[in-house]
Design a binder for these strands. Structure first.
Lengths: 348, 348
DNA sequence: TCCTCGATGGAAAGCGCTTTCTATCGCAGA
DNA sequence: TCTGCGATAGAAAGCGCTTTCCATCGAGGA
């Protein structure tokens, strides 16, 4: 029925061992033999049995990329970059063809753990966790334990945009400098003269949410400006829309609103427009991430750029083992303020 | 070192066979025994060896979802929906925990084939191909052959947003009604009085591009209106930006531009704005897909809505086998015209 | 000319699980 | 009390590959 290694061996008049060696290319095989084997493979249209191979070799070519929301370009861009890096890495070396797959956790801790277990089952070669995580102690512990087991079993673990597990200095980690980015953004607003700034935050208990909020507050504190209203919501446009109403209700004299990210900012803009408020004339708006559509908003969004593509590539290479993690703990991915039309001086 | 089935069996004082049966739940095991086994599993923190299991059972729990561009929400939304459906399907049944993974082909035929092979290696339970495909005869043949082999090996194949392979009536297929959607869109423009309509098309040789263009032309032909300029480009914002310059150069009196999709439309809008043209006062703009950000464009984009989420869910269920494909060939997913502010009557 | 070593190829022992095929046990029917 | 059957559990044979020994064959070196 299905063609096996043995069939190929028989056709090429060699032993199964030789076929295996030709396919894996990690053992000297005479050129003529190799060619004969490859021809047989071709003629029989043979495809290696992955499970059998993984079982015998005790490794697999699967690389898992866990993301919080695959429908969000923030993750899409990083995942795409990582997948690209993993693909080209494979092309570079001889037989290391890796299957990079992305798994969508939907931000659910349970699904995250499930995927991690499934990946562990598959004896994945590497796992990349992208994006902030829930700050629930229980989940953190469970995740840390899972990652430790994975690492122990030989799976390379890479954290990308998620703080490193405390006490575990040896898994590669890329952390986004959300704090500094957020701080610069608020400083920019402060510099323009804003003193009443609302904040449309992301979901509670998420590292990304917390870090951005901390940066925001740090800027405020440093400038001696009192903190304005803050409301929390999901990382989507509707949350931004709703947050705006709430923010304005709490302080009708707001002159600026900082959003958890660009998507939320879009919702904020929509809400403002619907109330007949001008951006940035009446209220300035700022986002975060600098996703592709941000420049197309009207007015274009002031935001903080994160080198998502670059981070994804780096994560992919770390996962492939083609690049080594930096020696001194987690690497910081810098954030860069991008000023556009959605922020301006407050009226008055 | 690593815990195996045998270890669990020893601890629970049963045979490996029994442990396997408890884990797979497809054979009667006395409640007391089952409990003892489960406790042992828990105590030893046992995780099934996927490759071994797949090898012995000749099946795996992997479901591959191939998309053209994971950074594009068009695919992100569908993939997310499919993954959700596959996850919940697993929760519903007893042990059918499936690992839905998305693979990013980047629109490259070669990568598509590579992923298909890799999935075939893994003896994937199902494969979902999302989005239009390249219309190169050679690639079509190769893909069809690959899919046939997969199906033959027991992998369920689902096409979502891609035309069915000719001559293969038995793989499940969901086809988007791009033609009708595009036609309605252009009819809408025609109804508003537009007679000089430019078209910013997607990449050549792609089914999606062709179908949308055909619908557009059909509307034009039916109305006896001559076709305006058409330029092709990628499915991204920059392509739209550049296409606009070209379109306007070819016909400075254009009163409307139809874009291949919403992302391209955003680029068109940006280009128009940069030239000081009003939308829709000077030029009307229309997109396709109705991605989430379309409503946030200013003015909000007139577009054609495709039920991406629903299609993704359906594809996921077909892949799981929890829903049967419709009997009479491929299912058509309807497109719906959504009129918003970016289209209006031409001046004069 | 004999021996040693490098280059190749084969034999065979698993990798950890699933799944027949059997064996056992207890109880209902006769 | 004996037979038979349903319900469980175990034994053992692989699933298709990788990889560690070994065996073989020439070609130099002594």
């Amino acid at each position: 029925m299905t063609v096996t290694l043995a069939d190929v061996a028989a056709r090429a008049r060699v032993s199964p061992a030789t076929v295996s060696r030709v396919l894996n290319g990690n053992y000297p095989v005479a050129a003529s033999t190799r060619e004969r084997v490859l021809r047989a493979v071709d003629e029989l249209d043979y495809v290696l049995n992955g499970p059998a191979s993984s079982l015998a070799a005790a490794t697999s070519d699967l690389v898992g990329v866990l993301v919080n929301d695959i429908a969000d370009p923030f993750f899409g861009i990083m995942a795409s970059a990582a997948q690209g890096a993993i693909g080209e890495g494979a092309a570079g070396r001889g037989g290391g063809e890796k299957l990079a797959v992305v798994c969508n956790t939907g931000g659910s801790p349970a699904r995250e753990l499930t995927y991690l277990t499934l990946l562990q089952r598959q004896r994945a070669a590497a796992v990349i966790l992208m994006g902030g995580s829930l700050e629930d102690p229980e989940h953190l512990t469970a995740t840390a334990a899972k990652l430790a087991r994975l690492a122990e079993a030989g799976t390379r673990v890479v954290l990308c945009g998620r703080p490193p597990v405390p006490g575990d200095a040896n898994t590669a980690a890329l952390v986004f400098d959300n704090r500094t980015g957020a701080r610069q953004l608020t400083e920019h607003l402060l510099g323009l003269g804003h003193r009443r700034i609302g904040y449309a935050a992301g979901p509670a208990d998420r590292t990304t949410t917390r870090h951005r909020l901390e940066g925001h507050r740090a800027a405020l504190t440093a400038a001696g400006v009192p903190e304005g209203p803050t409301v929390r919501g999901a990382y989507d446009r509707q949350a931004g829309y709703e947050a705006t109403a709430e923010l304005l209700a709490r302080d009708p004299d707001l002159t600026a609103i900082v959003a958890a990210n660009d998507t939320v900012a879009l919702g904020v803009c929509a809400a403002l427009r619907d109330r007949g408020l001008d951006i940035p004339g009446d209220v300035s708006v700022a986002g975060f991430d600098d996703l592709p559509f941000s420049v197309d908003a009207v007015p274009a969004l002031t935001t903080v750029r994160l080198p998502l593509h670059g981070a994804g590539v780096r994560a992919g290479r770390l996962a492939m083992g083609t690049e080594e993690p930096s020696a001194g703990g987690p690497e910081t991915v810098p954030a860069e303020l991008v000023v556009r039309g959605s922020t301006g001086r407050p009226r008055g």
